Simulated assay, not measured.
Amino acid sequence: MLKIDSKFIQKVQQSEELEELYPLLQNAIELEHSTIPPYLTAMFSIKPGKNLEDRKIIHSIVIEEMMHMTIAANILNALGGQPYISNSDFVPEYPGPLPMGIGNGLIVGLEKYSKACVKNVFMEIEEPENPLVFKSFSLAATQDFSTIGQFYLALQQKIEEIAPIELPGDKSKQVTSAFFDPALLFPIYTRHDAVNAINIIVEQGEGTSISPLDQDGEIAHYYRFEELFKGKKLIKDDTAPNGFSFSGPDIPFNPDDVYPLFPNTKIAMLPTGSEEWNRMKQFNTSYFSLLQGLHKTFNGDPAGLDNTIGIMYDLKLTAEKLCATPFPGKEGYTIGPSFEYITVPSEIAV
């Protein structure tokens, strides 16, 4: 389980002014973003046209993590703060703990897709305080730390406590998009809007305390990853504990249809000036441009979210080429995307 340092919960609970919540919501944006590179790396490592259901499930979770990041930015803007996306501190170092994570807790890297990665990393990131148990599978829960969901619920409670009904932020900075369901990504103008938006983040990630489904009837991230690990779809089952069981269709997986990425590849590992080095530089240039585009989107150019779709497509194409490229000097491995922060000349930045 991703252990969130208790000091962040305490800071939320001790806040008396909205301004004290600004850095904590910035932390939330950083946390939502930090899960995306590991998930994308695993997805890109799947060979084109192979392991289709695995790719589909990971892709659906990535899209929702992007939406959660946008929701967190919308809440920060609604409270009167300002998101910061395109600075070097925003990008995590992989492998390492995720933002707000306790140093001796979960270490997350960039590696190829595998059942072990799903169980030991992805399910750990998304695990709720008390995961529901279906049939024989169980993960123990303890009470001596906080989960992502608990952090969000503390934020929700504090906003309900100290925020005015009409939130003070600039309404023109609220981001929506035809790419997302308007019932899930909506402008946050009021305290009630913020409360509802946080419920969406928590339930899509962890489910509810009594169901693996979120309020939209979709399976939460934790249980979608559990589907991948078990290789079976989770379906309603009135005869099973909690009303669901992993008795649905098989999710076939062939490990031979995954590129053998060298884990946690860095551009410095590649021969400077080589074709491989240039391809990695191209990837990180697109990644920086994406972050810069998102920064502008969340800071007064909300229509820019749709304009980043083209950059995301370039990022995908370059990453897939990297994953198929043999790693120079490391026989049997291919190159994984590094998601490293670089500065880009202004004339090519978004």
Rank of each mutant, 00 (worst) to 15 (best):
T208Y: 09
Y223V: 01
G81D: 12
S211Y: 06
S286M: 08
D214Y: 08
I61V: 15
N104W: 14
A194I: 01
A240Y: 00
Y259R: 06
A197L: 10
P345F: 10
E127V: 11
L153M: 13
S338E: 10
K266Y: 08
I188L: 07
E17V: 10
E124N: 14
A28D: 01
F244W: 11
S45D: 01
D237H: 06
D144C: 00
D181K: 12
L106C: 02
I210L: 13
L132I: 15
N254V: 00
A220W: 04
E166I: 07
K236L: 09
V175P: 04
K173F: 04
A141C: 11
P345H: 12
I165V: 13
R55K: 15
E17T: 14
S209Y: 09
C323T: 09
W277M: 11
I235T: 05
S289G: 10
S45V: 03
N87M: 09
I58E: 02
S211E: 03
D301G: 00
E161G: 03
N196M: 12
I9M: 06
K7V: 15
V350Q: 13
D306G: 03
Y287M: 07
E227C: 03
P260D: 07
K56Y: 05
W277S: 12
P252L: 01
M123V: 07
K7W: 04
F137L: 14
P212L: 04
S114R: 03
L106Q: 06
A324D: 08
K171P: 09
